[in-house]
Design a protein around this nucleic acid. Structure first.
Lengths: 325, 325
DNA sequence: TTGTATGCGTTATCAT
DNA sequence: ATGATAACGCATACAA
């Protein structure tokens, strides 16, 4: 395959001139430019970008770490990231880590390796201290609130959002509330758990341990929760559920069993998913698309400006009132 | 940042020896290896992979072209791809093209540029002839059946699968069938459309043009279809719908209006999505995860073996009998 | 088992 | 406006 040297030879110019044409630099005469362009066309030449990456120290690529791509939550964030990356002419390297720390480290090593210009961590199995070590090699943005770290973050105020959801429920008069969480571990889960327990205590709400249910990630899990609620000697008047698809599963199964929603059981979802709209689930929209878009904009800004100062961007959330509460 | 030369100097060996250690080559004495490893540790050295890519001509990356990541269909395929890529220690570059030919071409140009070792095209706005032009620069695998092309493909027999779905419906005694399609354009859509029309004609089934509905991609679209069915002077006894989530929207809305499923209206879905299991939707599983996994295995094989001979892999499909037909 | 020298293909520097 | 040459950091053929 032809290289810049050959183009130069055939076009009768220096490699520098060819490079200038390639990069749209000024100070190239019209005819020389034409000659170069001609030769490029003739030889079907194209740059070897690896050489460009080597000498410029930039690759135009950003890696994204997330546990699973086929989950609404992550795919919407990814959508936001991808959209902005397209606009910025950047490439996205997807690392589906399955929460394996080992794999996530490999991605951060790519930053050290100069294979990528930055890393967006949507969810991580890694400790903040570990991530911080890598900020020396390039910008890192997380989509979780890890405090004022040496890397940027764009995050949802899970505590406040969850509390507001509970407030909404008590405002509607519910005095006993159950809680359905996704993965038990995970930083946002524990924050919400704290918010839940504190709120229950503050407002002296009725409560039973079995009303806190973990590891509900699928529609089927939601349905299973419905069945177990039906078998409880005493069940809560309302459920707050992280993920509208899980809420949907619960609602469909509960209705199948003859329960009226919200009459017999109120349900509040999370994430404002399409299925939630269909079932008219009252939910909290936490602007996931914007989260991804924002994360990319931040990392792109940091790469372009060579400014490593971290930024911390707090996102809005909003209760969408529908008819399951 | 330190480079191989500096490591060599400090460790008191040649750069070749350092390179050998780095690449786990044999013929390095124990103490020299230890010295090199020590120095690497001390200087916190890591390879500049761009230099490696330049000289080896390989990058260990494969690009994936798909229109939208936040759709069940694509995200499952992506999951399969990502899983296999992880096993093979390969990186995946995600290009969310929004069906923009221009963006898809850019990805194929990356193959020419040597930025990637291969391309997986899950869905494309590109003509087969255009794709074929790029096979000169590296292996390409598509997830669509485009016949015996100069690139590989792993595909679902949309015609046969759809026909089997219709067969299943007529087998259950339905004599008037409606059809709900995703994007009107798109190769699989037109194949199914042909299958549908031919089947209707062959079996002399009742048919009305308004029973063919296009551009149904969301739950809401499915619900809208339910509403429009209710307003038809004459409606089909059964609907076959590409995508369980669309079918779910239709079913939920239809039941809301008092229709019994399958009593008043039978519904057959596609893709075996989680929501379909919850609503007990009879569906056709076309093994999307396996599609992604298989696509990656093929391209990985072709990259590793330098064998450009295309392979054509036909996937299985399977009707899952539940209770909406 | 080890080292020297060369090449990968480009951009950056500096001189003219 | 143009060109000669260095530099990027590594792998590898070849010699020893």
């Amino acid at each position: 395959m032809a290289n810049i040297k050959e183009i130069a030879r055939i076009a009768g110019v220096s490699v520098t001139t060819v490079s200038r044409v390639l990069n749209n630099h000024p100070y190239v005469s019209k005819d020389k430019r034409a000659a170069v362009l001609d030769t490029i066309e003739q030889l079907n030449y194209t740059r070897n970008m690896n050489a460009v990456h080597l000498i410029t120290g930039r690759t135009g690529a950003v890696a994204v770490i997330l546990p699973y791509i086929n989950a609404f939550y992550f795919s919407i964030i990814m959508n936001g990231l991808a959209h902005e990356a397209l606009l910025a002419q950047y490439r996205l390297i997807l690392c589906q880590s399955n929460y394996l720390a080992e794999e996530e480290i490999k991605v951060l090593e790519m930053l050290r390796n100069k294979e990528i210009d930055g890393v967006v961590i949507v969810s991580t199995a890694l400790k903040p201290e570990v991530i911080e070590e890598y900020t020396a090699y390039g910008p890192v943005v997380t989509c979780q609130d890890s405090g004022q770290r040496r890397y940027s973050s764009v995050y949802i105020e899970h505590y406040a959002a969850f509390r507001q959801g509970l407030q909404y429920l008590t405002g509607k008069g519910y005095r006993s509330i159950g809680y359905c969480e996704g993965r038990q571990n995970g930083s946002s889960a524990s924050i919400r758990q704290t918010a839940f327990r504190e709120f229950i205590a503050e407002h002296k709400l009725d409560f039973q341990e079995e009303w806190m249910i973990y590891d509900c990630t699928t529609e089927e899990d939601g349905a299973a929760v419905a069945r177990s609620l039906l078998e409880m000697p005493e069940r809560p008047e309302a459920m707050i559920i992280t993920g509208d698809h899980v809420a949907a599963g619960l609602i469909i199964e509960a209705r199948k069993a003859g329960l009226s929603i919200p009459g017999d059981l109120a349900v509040m979802g999370f994430d404002n998913q399409p299925i939630g709209r269909l079932l008219e689930i009252t939910t909290i929209d936490n602007h996931l698309y914007e989260m991804g878009a924002s994360a990319f904009r931040i990392i792109h800004e940091q790469i372009s400006s060579d400014n490593p100062d971290p930024v911390y961007r707090k996102l809005d959330y909003r209760i969408i009132e529908r008819s399951t509460v």
